[in-house]
Amino acid sequence: EVTIKANLIFANGSTQTAEFKGTFEKATSEAYAYADTLKKDNGEYTVDVADKGYTLNIKFAG
Rank of each mutant, 00 (worst) to 15 (best):
E1G: 08
E1C: 05
E1Y: 06
E1S: 07
E1H: 08
E1T: 06
E1I: 06
V2G: 05
V2W: 05
V2S: 07
V2C: 04
T3N: 06
T3P: 04
T3R: 10
T3E: 06
I4N: 00
I4Y: 01
I4R: 01
K5Q: 10
K5C: 05
K5D: 03
K5R: 13
A6P: 00
A6L: 11
A6G: 04
A6W: 01
A6C: 04
N7R: 12
N7H: 14
N7Y: 11
L8H: 02
L8W: 04
L8R: 01
L8M: 13
L8I: 15
L8C: 04
L8D: 00
I9P: 00
I9M: 10
I9W: 15
I9F: 12
I9K: 12
I9T: 10
I9Y: 14
F10G: 02
F10V: 03
F10H: 04
A11V: 14
A11T: 12
A11F: 11
N12G: 08
N12R: 07
N12A: 06
N12F: 06
N12P: 04
G13R: 09
G13I: 03
G13L: 13
S14Q: 15
S14M: 14
S14R: 15
S14T: 13
S14W: 14
T15G: 08
Q16C: 05
Q16Y: 07
Q16E: 07
Q16H: 15
T17L: 12
T17C: 05
T17E: 11
A18S: 15
A18W: 12
A18R: 15
E19H: 13
E19L: 12
E19D: 12
E19W: 14
E19V: 13
E19Q: 11
E19T: 11
F20D: 00
F20H: 02
F20M: 03
K21T: 15
K21A: 12
K21S: 15
G22E: 03
G22D: 07
G22Y: 02
G22A: 07
T23A: 11
T23Y: 15
T23V: 14
T23P: 11
T23Q: 14
T23K: 04
F24M: 14
F24L: 12
F24W: 15
F24P: 05
F24S: 04
E25D: 11
E25L: 05
E25G: 06
E25W: 04
E25I: 06
E25T: 07
E25P: 07
E25F: 05
K26Y: 12
K26C: 05
K26N: 15
K26V: 14
A27V: 04
A27R: 00
A27G: 04
A27Y: 00
A27Q: 02
A27T: 03
A27S: 05
T28V: 11
T28D: 02
T28E: 06
T28W: 13
T28F: 09
T28H: 09
S29V: 10
S29G: 11
S29L: 14
S29R: 13
S29N: 14
S29T: 13
E30C: 06
E30Y: 09
E30S: 09
A31W: 02
A31H: 02
A31I: 14
A31Y: 01
A31V: 11
A31Q: 01
A31R: 00
A31G: 03
A31S: 03
Y32D: 01
Y32V: 07
Y32M: 14
Y32T: 05
Y32Q: 04
A33W: 06
A33C: 05
A33G: 09
Y34F: 13
Y34A: 04
Y34S: 02
Y34I: 04
A35Y: 02
A35S: 06
A35W: 01
A35K: 00
A35F: 13
A35M: 11
D36H: 06
D36R: 04
D36K: 04
D36A: 07
D36N: 11
D36P: 00
T37K: 08
T37E: 11
T37L: 09
T37F: 09
T37N: 13
T37H: 11
L38F: 14
L38I: 09
L38P: 00
L38V: 04
K39F: 05
K39L: 06
K39P: 02
K39E: 06
K39Y: 06
K40H: 14
K40A: 10
K40S: 06
K40N: 09
K40P: 13
D41A: 15
D41M: 13
D41F: 09
D41I: 12
D41W: 15
D41V: 15
D41P: 05
N42C: 04
N42G: 06
N42A: 14
N42S: 10
N42T: 04
N42W: 15
N42K: 10
G43S: 03
G43T: 02
G43M: 03
G43V: 02
G43D: 03
G43K: 02
E44N: 15
E44S: 14
E44M: 14
E44P: 12
E44W: 08
Y45E: 00
Y45G: 01
Y45C: 03
T46D: 08
T46S: 10
T46M: 12
T46F: 14
T46C: 07
V47R: 02
V47D: 02
V47Q: 02
V47E: 02
D48K: 08
D48P: 01
D48R: 08
D48T: 12
V49W: 10
V49I: 11
V49K: 08
V49Y: 12
V49T: 11
A50C: 05
A50Y: 12
D51K: 04
D51M: 05
D51W: 02
D51V: 02
K52I: 09
K52R: 09
K52S: 15
K52V: 08
G53Q: 03
G53V: 02
G53S: 04
Y54T: 07
Y54R: 06
Y54V: 05
Y54M: 07
Y54W: 08
Y54Q: 07
Y54G: 05
T55F: 07
T55E: 11
T55V: 13
T55R: 05
L56E: 00
L56W: 03
L56C: 01
L56V: 06
L56S: 01
L56K: 01
L56F: 04
N57K: 07
N57M: 10
N57E: 10
N57H: 10
N57C: 05
N57W: 09
I58M: 10
I58P: 00
I58T: 01
I58W: 01
I58F: 14
K59T: 13
K59C: 05
K59Q: 10
F60Q: 01
F60C: 01
F60H: 01
F60W: 05
F60S: 00
F60I: 01
A61Q: 12
A61D: 09
G62T: 11
G62E: 09
G62Y: 09
G62N: 12
